[in-house]
Design a protein around this nucleic acid. Structure first.
Length: 299
DNA sequence: CAGGCGTGGTG
DNA sequence: TCACCAAGCCT
């Protein structure tokens, strides 16, 4: 019997993908050693649903201004929202600020190393906890983001796209594919994600540049097109989200509290406008003051 | 668990 | 042009 006892399910995928990564990985600031766990964590918050190209400049400003969690923690949350700029989903800024406060209070100012501790922080879900633990601390976790899910769906599952929501089957597959060693697993996580971001993309798959094209189940099956309904497109024009965005843009630019009348100019329809503003206040993104004034939250 | 939550680039 | 997409989280 020559077979070793703990052979991974698909050991042949690891080496080509990791080697490809060594050659083609982008030189991103949060991948450099000087970024540290805090830099990794900040980047992960910003990258949630936001392209790398838009994150880069904000990331640099953020780290220069708040090089440690404690630096951000002592700021007003509104300053985090302001510095977030136009990255989108500004609740992330609030949550990152909240995470910095929690890190300062509960973890002595250092980004925690444990997956469960990370998961307990605001704005950190399953993906981000695994990503920080893996990228910042070299731990072995299944890091299942949209890129990795797509790569696995194709290379292993033989279909064009993964399911809309992450399934237990996907998690199981991701765990089964994980290399045994911590360090190798961390490289694998970063490499498989980068492959999905650069080569095995949603719209154009570039199989000629793919290091595992020869063993890709989807390609070998003749690249059958996605079956079933298309993903629900996110509508935007005319929604509360658009109104919220316009309201918050005014408040981000303002140095002093803004009168209601000024906010009223961003949207004609009064019911929707009021609903959007109320929502921002409920979310803690906007602080109402006496006299019909509004500003970003000071506390 | 489906739906809400920003923004700008792109085919 | 405009629908779709980009390293999710929370309720």
């Amino acid at each position: 019997m020559t077979a070793p006892t703990k052979t991974p399910t698909h050991p042949d995928l690891h080496e080509p993908v990791i080697d490809w990564f060594a050659e083609h990985a982008r030189d991103l600031p949060w991948r450099r050693p000087e970024a540290g766990p805090w830099g990794v964590m900040v980047s992960e918050f910003m990258l949630q649903q936001t392209p790398v190209s838009r994150v880069l400049p904000v990331y640099e400003q953020w780290l220069a201004r708040w090089p440690r969690p404690a630096d951000l923690a002592k700021e007003a949350p509104g300053e985090a929202v302001r510095a977030w700029g136009r990255l989108g989903y500004p609740r992330r800024a609030l949550r990152l600020h909240g995470a910095a406060v929690a890190i300062t209070e509960r973890h002595g100012g250092d980004v925690p190393t444990g997956h469960a501790q990370l998961l307990a922080l605001p704005g950190i879900g399953e993906y981000t906890a695994a990503a920080v633990a893996s990228f910042a601390y070299g731990q072995r976790h299944a890091v299942l983001d949209t890129n990795v899910r797509r790569v696995f769906a194709r290379a292993v599952g033989g279909v064009q796209y993964p399911p809309n929501a992450t399934t237990a089957a996907e998690r199981k597959m991701a765990r089964a594919l994980l290399p045994e060693e911590d360090e190798t697993a961390a490289k694998w996580a970063a490499a498989s994600m980068e492959l999905g971001a650069l080569v095995c993309t949603a719209k154009n798959e570039n199989c000629h540049r793919c290091p595992i094209a020869a063993m890709c189940a989807w390609r070998l099956a003749g690249k059958p097109p996605h079956e079933g309904p298309a993903r629900r497109g996110q509508t935007y024009a005319g929604t509360d989200r658009q109104v919220r965005g316009k309201l918050l843009a005014v408040l981000r630019e303002a140095v002093a509290p803004v009168p209601q009348a000024v906010l009223d100019r961003v949207w004609d329809e009064p019911v929707q406008r009021a609903r959007a503003l109320d929502g921002l206040v409920d979310d803690g993104l906007v602080e109402p003051l006496p006299g019909g004034l509004y500003r970003l939250p000071a506390s």
